[in-house]
Simulated scan of single mutants.
Amino acid sequence: MSSAPVHILLVDDLEENLLSLEVLLRRDDVVLLKARSGEEALELLVHDVALALLDVQMPGMNGFELAEFMRGNERTNHIPIIFVTAGSADNQRRFRGYEAGAVDFIQKPIEADVLRSKARIFFDLYRQRRQLAEQRDALEAASLALREADRRKDEFLAVLGHELRNPLAALGAGLHMLKKRAGTDQAEPIREQMERQLFHLARLVEDLLDISRISEGKISLQKERIELATVLRSAIEASTPNLEAAAHRFTADIPEAPIWIDADHTRLAQIVSNLLNNAAKYTPAGGAVTLRARAADGWVEIEVADNGVGIAPEMQSRIFRLFEQVEDHRDRAAGGLGVGLALVRQLVALHQGTIAVCSEGQGKGSCFTVRVPG
């Protein structure tokens, strides 16, 4: 239940009466809002009030008129009102009070136990109502998140169907052509094309397996003391075909002095390779991709930068979500299921590290920075 304080409105034209009410109702979890007139009380109704104690007889706007105003206002019409009166509560006065929206009357002089008991009931009701509102908001937020996840999963399945169909169609066509050209010089190029499509298909299946591992929390690390340069060389080797295919200028800035780190060699290389492949994919042909690494203050920092299509500010917080792809980049995401960066974030987190992206916007390149403990 929320621990926010409860606001109580006290309205009486006599200061001594306000002080008496304050003494009776003072609690650590209660904020008492005091007003000497109906007009002054209206200014205090900007707060979310759990209960209002109104003096009936006041100069200017009396208690009944203030209550009628509160009942006519959408913001305040839910506030329980107890009238405090020094006069006799005859039937006519009670009728007008209840008609104005009162839930009860209290006679002066006030019985302390009676007032505290009634106030406590409204405190509890207010907190229960606020708790229900918070639960409703939480449920709405969860429902919205589920709908968004469902939408992205539907998009992912559509992309998956397209991505699987292409290599399967190419493999089928290749087998058909091999039957016709078996034993000829044309057979070898066909087999090479089929090998590329098979590699592409295997990578898609591996992405699907990684989705399952992410969802079920089954990705684990095999940490050991390793030298960072060996990890980076493995990542570069894995990414070189994509970098060369796009004729990118690739630069690696790796310190000559050994940098030792406790990490999973395969998974850390996968992190860097995924970032390099991502840079290669979203950088126009002939672009520039840079890999930098350094150690400082007990951390190892790995940076992959490019001068490619960039990322709009509103997308930079979304690209690490599972199945998420930048809408304007989908045409470039050949062979991608939108799980690469989600997997990278998961693997970085398992290394107790962080990953951040920086881009000045579309067409201005991007830079991903991974920090893991040294």
Rank of each mutant, 00 (worst) to 15 (best):
E140H: 11
D262I: 14
D104L: 09
E155A: 15
G72C: 13
I106Q: 02
L291T: 05
S212L: 15
R249N: 09
D331H: 11
Q352H: 13
V30D: 00
I81F: 01
S143R: 12
F83E: 03
E314A: 13
D154V: 15
E314N: 10
T240V: 09
L51R: 05
T76P: 08
M194G: 07
R120C: 10
A52N: 03
L157G: 05
V6D: 00
G336K: 11
A356R: 08
D264Q: 06
E111R: 15
A4Y: 00
R152D: 13
C367M: 09
D113M: 14
T85M: 03
K153P: 03
A247K: 15
E303T: 15
R127C: 07
R93H: 09
A35C: 13
I190E: 00
L54M: 09
A142N: 03
A285D: 04
R233M: 08
A133E: 06
A356C: 07
G308Y: 03
A247D: 11
R120P: 06
D264M: 08
V339A: 01
V372W: 01
E74R: 14
I8C: 04
M315L: 07
E206C: 11
E148I: 12
R213D: 07
R120A: 15
A229N: 04
L42H: 00
R151Q: 08
A238N: 07
L275D: 03
T266W: 03
R96A: 12
G374Q: 11
A100K: 03
Q92D: 10
N166C: 11
R151K: 12
R345Q: 07
V205C: 07
V84H: 00
N166Q: 13
L198G: 08
N73P: 09
T369I: 14
P59G: 07
P59A: 06
A280I: 10
K153M: 14
S273G: 06
H162W: 00
S37F: 05
E237Q: 11
V300K: 05
G97P: 06
A182I: 11
T230Q: 07
L168A: 08
V370M: 02
A4L: 14
A245M: 13
D154C: 09
E39R: 10
L291S: 02
A305H: 02
R233D: 07
R233F: 05
T230L: 12
P167T: 06
P313F: 01
A35S: 05
A138Q: 11
D48H: 09
G365M: 01
V84M: 11
L125T: 03
L10V: 10
T354P: 05
V339R: 02
V31M: 05
D207W: 00
S220H: 13
F123P: 12
V339W: 00
L33H: 01
F105R: 04
S215C: 14
A295N: 05
A170P: 06
E155D: 13
A295R: 11
N307H: 04
Q92T: 14
T251W: 00
E65F: 01
S143K: 05
R152V: 09
Y126G: 08
A142Q: 13
D264I: 14
V84R: 02
Q107P: 13
L276V: 08
L276K: 02
H351P: 13
E192I: 15
L322T: 13
L337G: 06
K153D: 00
D137I: 13
I271W: 00
Q222E: 14
S366M: 15
V11M: 02
F69C: 09
S2E: 05
S20R: 10
D137P: 10
V370L: 06
N278E: 08
H47N: 12
Q197L: 06
F123N: 04
